[in-house]
Simulated scan of single mutants.
Amino acid sequence: MEKHTEPLHLFITGGAGTGKSHLIKCIQYEATRILAQTSENPDDLTVLLTAPTGTAAFNIHGLTIHSALGIFKTLSPDHATLSEDKINSLRTKLENLQILIIDEISMVNKKLLFFVHERLRQVKKRPDKCLFGGVSVIAVGDFYQLPPVKTKRVDKLYVDDPSNPSNQLWNGLFEIAELDEIMRQREDGLFAELLNRLRVKQKNESLTLFDKRTLTHCFGDGPDEALHIYSTNAEVDNFNKEMIMKLCTESKLIEAQDFQKDKTSGKLTLKKESIAQSQMYVFQYLSFWPREQE
């Protein structure tokens, strides 16, 4: 007889460099290995690794929440449930899913989490009050980092709003585990501590004299290969152009030709008026540009 275990709802948080991404991979590997021993088919997908954006998913070698669970980006109420054909296709992939990992949870709003909840209930055929269809959910991230795009404050997960039906899916449900040891900058403890102070600093709070001096020391010219941080896009563009010109001997101006698709024939035709700012510089690299025959 199979043992019934209560689903886990865990929120793993911590500042930058505390090893959240590394921990995700360890959890996925170990959980997959253990759960494979309990499945009839060892190749069944039991642990699903996801993130709210393509970049975040790529960084952890996972899938976006939308593609993994068949969720439309519009988050329209009409799309809360899928048709039988689509859900059956999704169910064949996720019917044995036991753990869902969501990275960068700070970019997930209450509405998206509700869609995750509804989709898992539909996949698991659990239309009752069972949260997330009985699947364990491990959320990972830092609410001091990027918030959801175009989301009101009350719709952010950490804001307690009892009037919102999705409120129960986060507030008071998830247990918190905080990573507090910085691993990425562990060889420079003073700088790591400074970064943590900046992480929790309020707008009306002043920096300490020591922090100001430390940051000021980072200003000025540094090695070209070092990461440079600027406050405006114009400064970034200027620096990039300077670095490109150091690697290039000459520049070439290529005027772009703008085409549009003819609705009748389906062929591409040259536009009479070019699109604004359609010209670009292509720089000649000595190592890649083909030399003329002498």
Rank of each mutant, 00 (worst) to 15 (best):
F174E: 01
A256I: 03
L45K: 02
L69H: 01
F58R: 06
I87D: 08
L215N: 10
Q145M: 04
Q145S: 03
T264W: 07
I229G: 05
K263E: 14
T232F: 06
F11R: 01
E175H: 07
I275E: 11
P42I: 02
N59A: 04
K267M: 10
I105Y: 00
F219D: 06
S21A: 06
T208M: 07
T46E: 01
Q257W: 04
S76C: 11
S106H: 03
A139I: 06
R33K: 11
D188S: 15
D78G: 09
F143G: 06
R197W: 10
P42H: 00
T64K: 00
K3A: 08
Q257H: 12
G134R: 04
S163L: 13
D142K: 02
Q279L: 04
D43M: 05
E84P: 10
Q185F: 06
L247I: 09
E30P: 02
V200H: 11
A276K: 12
D221A: 15
H217W: 13
L194V: 11
Q168Y: 05
S166W: 01
F11P: 00
G17A: 08
G172P: 01
R199Y: 06
L49C: 04
F143S: 10
M245K: 08
L207C: 11
K129E: 12
Q168T: 14
Y29F: 03
E95F: 12
T249S: 13
E178L: 09
I244P: 09
H79G: 05
I275L: 13
D221P: 06
Q277I: 06
T18N: 09
H22M: 08
F283K: 04
E250H: 05
K25R: 14
V123K: 00
V236T: 08
A16L: 04
L198T: 11
